[in-house]
Amino acid sequence: MTIALPRRLLAEFTGTALLVTAVVGSGVMAATLSPDDVGLQLLENSVATAFALGALILIFGPVSGAHLNPVVSAADWFLGRRAGTGLTGRDLGGYVLAQVTGAIAGSVLANLMFDLSAVTLSGKERSGGHLWLGEVVATAGLVLLVFALARSGRAPVAPAAVGAYIGAAYWFTSSTSFANPAVTVGRAFTDTFAGIAPASVPGFVLAQLVGLTVGVALLLALYPGVGAAADRVVVPADRAVPTEQAR
């Protein structure tokens, strides 16, 4: 049984909001606890984000697939079109809207939790070809991971695998691996450790879309039948719970 779209959109909104709350909130806490050590701040931020992301996939995966990322949703829609699987165009539009608004709400929530102004646009410039290349690499790798897991029947390990990948990518990419257009937009609404200046957002989002294209192209080359697995990204929403529980 496919879960009703409004329930899935609520899951995407809430899950993305909590993801951004974790990213921003752990950044604020890291800067407070380790004010003179940027490396330690990044470690604290990345570990909290990785664990939070894994937990959120476990919570919301059985409802919406826990995409929490327009890149994952767009890949799911594109790869599933010919096989008649994955998100429909209507679903995709709803998912992206829920994810972006959820990300903004999550940033506001984190600001309020730490007694900051609800909205303060970030002044942290993040621009340059090397950072955009980092976003291409991070995003392409994420798309490859998520859909390779689904195609090979290993979607149940996605919470741990995706959390581990994002945590690692904080360190091996020059951009600290945003890899998510919704999260990128949300992080513009906080002038804290995890923020990004609004003027830097378009470059990051464009790089993420390039990463999406690269990731999808590699998937089609490596896993030609990957579209058939689009219904299993990240967790199969129509099979994760018995029918009577999904109503």
Rank of each mutant, 00 (worst) to 15 (best):
V63K: 02
G54H: 09
T21E: 03
V23C: 13
A50M: 12
M29V: 13
V20G: 00
A30N: 02
V28D: 00
A52E: 06
T21R: 01
G25I: 00
M29D: 08
L58P: 03
A50T: 07
H67W: 11
V47H: 06
L40K: 14
T21L: 15
T14P: 02
S64W: 02
E12V: 10
A17N: 04
D36W: 03
P6T: 09
A30W: 00
R8M: 12
A55S: 11
L5F: 13
L58D: 10
E44F: 07
F13K: 04
P6N: 09
L53M: 12
A30G: 07
R8W: 06
S34C: 04
L40N: 12
L58G: 14
G39D: 09
G15P: 01
V20C: 01
F51T: 05
I57W: 05
E12T: 12
G39K: 04
A30Y: 01
I57A: 10
L9N: 01
A17I: 05
L56A: 08
F60Y: 15
G65L: 09
G61D: 03
R7W: 14
F51M: 11
P62E: 07
R8E: 11
I59A: 15
L19P: 03
V38N: 14
P62R: 01
G65R: 03
L42T: 14
S34Q: 07
A55N: 04
A66K: 07
A66Y: 06
G61A: 08
T14R: 02
I57K: 06
A55V: 11
L10Q: 11
A4D: 12
H67V: 06
L40A: 14
R8P: 04
R8L: 10
G15T: 02
F60W: 14
A31R: 03
S46I: 09
